[in-house]
Design a protein around this nucleic acid. Structure first.
Lengths: 350, 350
DNA sequence: CTGAAAGCGCTAACAG
DNA sequence: CTGTTAGCGCTTTCAG
């Protein structure tokens, strides 16, 4: 990588404007306390020289970085296979931008990367961290806590130990699942199966709980564990159908899973929703509209979650959450945790 | 955002180990030139104190940041609607990680953000930039060039002016399109239409060129411009069908477009591929496998593009491109530009 | 209201 | 081989 051309320093601007460095600094940072004729001269010098403050120098003294890290820990290949993170990222980015804060993305592909991330966070590059850690046994959260950086988690963290006070933002997975299953029941369906996601992820576990809430605990023969992928959905529905041939509905833990299930149904000549009704979760577009038939599903405001995470981190405790948002337990940490409502989107599959 | 706890400094470590700051610095940065008994003492002090070097201070003197910016300029909502960027990001992240370099993500939602990005790049936070700028009239590239930061573009830049020497990595869009259309022709299809993408994007323009290469210039009535979305694909195919009712094949500029086209075909009762064969571009999964029928399409190695972009930026001119990669014109800048080969994936739609 | 001076934490000559 | 000495570019008291 070739060298970056040397940029003008505060010194240079000061010289050109015929003032001291301190004065230039004042003008550059808001300009209060400098009288007009002078300030204008400084601004002109800044423009002429194309001066841009050196952030490293600034951080060194202010101890602020105007940057937050987004840590996405997902060993599996699936990480970006669905637009889920991407959408949250977008929400985060919008909110950070509004606060003139940079987004530093830290992707970890496996445990080897954890040390690197820990070092980075501890290295004082950022003012805080937004962390997506999906698995129960993930060592990352502990590592991050040790780094002593303010943190907000995306999705309810699953470790019971010292993490109780972690701030997080999540969708109402359990409530959404209940809505989905109730919808199916309301359609007159009786043998409602559930294809759940990997239970070491709280979102999957919570959706399963929601299903059980409505199904009175749920017959184990009606539940198959899967992995949030289309292929997994195919396999799981196959099992379910073999076990309970007269199934009349299935609630899939996410849309990807549902799409796999749909494929199996079509292959076996079963009509949706006449023979079997299907409900997904996520409202992942364009997939959810593109399946045959289009998927009835539980929408969560993914971008909104991202935005809220950033807001929580930036504002710290204090400001009330905006708009129509449910509010949940949470405690200390960087403020309350937030649980966003979900919404059933009716299409043709149920 | 609450304050980060004060971290131990080099000074503290030095005191604890009973050596000078310089010695600690040496040990921390590779440790050459420090005799063993001492070095060990230093390392222990580092561990005990949990010392992590302050990057701001380090950058201030070294002028290096071990960080690269990824700039994604995409005003439309579509940005993250498809996993395209996500996949490239992943490739980039892998390569950067291997070089112990951080990824700083800069998303721009509109022109208002350009200034911010320019400032950031010029602010000397990063050693280089990886830029995705899709539109011909995008002012960002010029802005970036002014910032004087080494840059590699994702996708062939489209401005003819002073940008000629920009380094970039791209897929062989034109060649891939030729392959697709030849495949259709090889199937005996004669009235092959093309739904192209927005022509202010080089990828769309190049695919159109590839189509024309094979179609001998191409009958304008067989070409409809669209916008890389399913809805756009629907609309475009509708027009095409109205204009040329006896169409027997269509090459869509991407899989999203193709999926929309498929939907129209199904709605009109036309069989695929019997009545009309369809080929897409991207091999975007799971979509391409999930459509009905599964899509024949042109695969590009998206993650590989990302990896190569990072490599190009980091290694600068010099190291040869790895593996089975085509090599294209390119010039000065940060090294050669690279054009990666594409591959036709045959499924049921053509 | 403006300038002078100190120092953030670190690396890189330069001595010893 | 190790320690001493200067700054990197900026903000921030503290005087004037």
């Amino acid at each position: 990588m070739s060298e970056t051309a040397p940029r003008p320093t505060l010194e240079a601007v000061a010289a050109r404007a015929g003032v001291s460095r301190a004065t230039v600094s004042r003008v550059v940072n808001g300009g209060d306390g400098v009288r007009e004729p002078l300030a204008a001269r400084v601004r002109r010098a800044v423009d002429e020289l194309g001066y841009v403050p050196n952030q490293a120098a600034r951080s060194l003294v202010t101890k602020r970085h105007d940057a937050v890290a987004v840590v996405i820990a997902e060993p599996e290949t699936r990480v970006f296979a669905d637009p889920f993170f991407a959408r949250q990222l977008r929400g985060i980015s919008k909110e950070l931008t509004a606060h003139d804060t940079q987004l530093v993305l830290l992707l970890t592909e496996g445990r080897e990367d954890h040390a690197r991330v820990g070092r980075y966070l501890a290295g004082g590059h950022v003012d805080g961290a937004l962390v997506f850690s999906l698995h129960l046994d993930d060592p990352l959260p502990a590592l991050i806590q040790r780094a002593g950086v303010p943190t907000v988690f995306g999705g309810r963290p699953g470790w019971s130990d010292g993490m109780r006070e972690a701030a997080y933002v999540d969708s109402d997975n359990r409530g959404g699942a209940r809505t989905a299953v109730r919808h199916l029941a309301g359609l007159g369906r009786r043998r409602i199966a559930h294809i759940c996601g990997p239970l070491d992820q709280t979102s999957a576990a919570d959706r399963l709980e929601g299903y059980r809430d409505v199904m009175d605990g749920g017959d184990p023969r009606l539940i198959a564990e899967s992995d949030f992928t289309p292929a997994g959905g195919e396999r799981a529905l196959g099992e379910l159908l073999d076990r309970v041939p007269d199934l009349d509905a299935v609630f899939a833990a996410n849309d990807l899973t549902a799409s796999g299930a749909l494929r199996v149904l079509r292959a076996r000549g079963l009509r949706v929703p006449e023979d079997i009704a299907v409900v997904g979760f996520d409202d992942m577009l364009p997939l959810a509209e593109q399946t045959d038939p289009p998927l009835t599903t539980v929408r969560q405001d993914i971008e909104g979650m991202g935005r809220l995470m950033a807001r929580l981190l930036l504002r710290g405790p204090g400001t009330a959450p905006p708009g129509p948002t449910g509010l949940a337990g949470g405690t200390g940490g960087t403020g309350r945790s937030l649980v966003l409502p979900t919404e059933l989107i009716r299409r043709a599959s149920a």
